[in-house]
Nucleic acid binder design. Sequence first.
DNA 1: CGAAAATCTTAATCATGATTAAGAAACGCA
DNA 2: TGCGTTTCTTAATCATGATTAAGATTTTCG
Lengths: 189, 189
Amino acid sequence: MIAPLLSHIQKYVPLTHEEQEVIAQYVQCLTVKNKQYLFTEGAPCSAQYFVIEGCLRMYFIKENGVEQIIQFGIDNWWISDYTSLTLNKPSQFYLQAVQPSKLFVLKKDKQEALFEHVPKLESYFRRIYQRAYAAAQTRQIYFSDLSGEEKYHHFATRFPDFIQRIPQYMLASYLGFTPEFLSKIRAKK
Amino acid sequence: MIAPLLSHIQKYVPLTHEEQEVIAQYVQCLTVKNKQYLFTEGAPCSAQYFVIEGCLRMYFIKENGVEQIIQFGIDNWWISDYTSLTLNKPSQFYLQAVQPSKLFVLKKDKQEALFEHVPKLESYFRRIYQRAYAAAQTRQIYFSDLSGEEKYHHFATRFPDFIQRIPQYMLASYLGFTPEFLSKIRAKK
DNA sequence: CGAAAATCTTAATCATGATTAAGAAACGCA
DNA sequence: TGCGTTTCTTAATCATGATTAAGATTTTCG
């Protein structure tokens, strides 16, 4: 059950058998239905989610009422509202399944306890967050250098299988434009 | 000399006197002039920079030749191209002083050695990167929810002293619009 | 199966902010 | 002090993508 997470961790740090068991005791496995929420705006977000299967979206509601997706959670990626998690503030985001999904949940207090028992995990998360931040920097390039149409083609080329799995209006939201505009782009070919 | 960095680290993890001395041996202090580059596009970026005084800008050159600033480096903030640093790839960015500045430099190989000697620093950087990633998530809200004019007013309200210190065209670049448009906004009042 | 909900498309009009091209003002340094 | 470089402003035209509104299609689920 917990194998996918342990094997992900071991890409970064080796684990003894005992450490693996400790980890298994601190995380929960969770199966969610399509449209189920993990947390919503206004409520403090007190956990991180590791996606094994399925797909999540994290979004906020803009001033004009439109949903803006800022991240998809797919296989082997940790996702959370890190401002809320770090500073115990109410979340600014909604985290929702967009497919039936399987996750691991690591609560904030469990994470802290886990660091005491398995200090190596500080190193694991240090690397994970470093990569997440690196990815955020790279994303900024695409989002400020490409036009809407270019962003779509770039994304469709890099993740051809992923765009089949989600509704187009969600892709449009993630790419920062309207579903109508996405239709227009697609009609060109 | 190294005091500002040690005191920043100690906001997150306590340090013994010996640990402080080890750290001092692994980081270099660097004074740079206005316009001096720390790294440029194409060259691998092999260090992180901690700004004590002055101001840096990290930017890339867009397809159309325009400079796009993605981050300013100011007091007590680590700055680097984390994709280049993590994966040993050529940097996508330029990091340049926009004021005479004082920095600490932590080279990649030194950082790794430092983690061996002072494992606590894994925890420090784990927290630093977690916060950096959190800030990147929050920035996404402002950049996708606010119009150009709103971004300017928001930024001017939050950092009134900072906007006095840098040329307006750099602020425009950071906020994602042209200097001409910034002039137009300012002319309204 | 059938109805309601979810998703996608088209087209007309509109707004934000880019581009271009000047010129004006401020600053930096010899 | 003066001259060149940087920085800032104004205004006209233009393009990307938003908005609005409607209808068409597909999916879901009782």
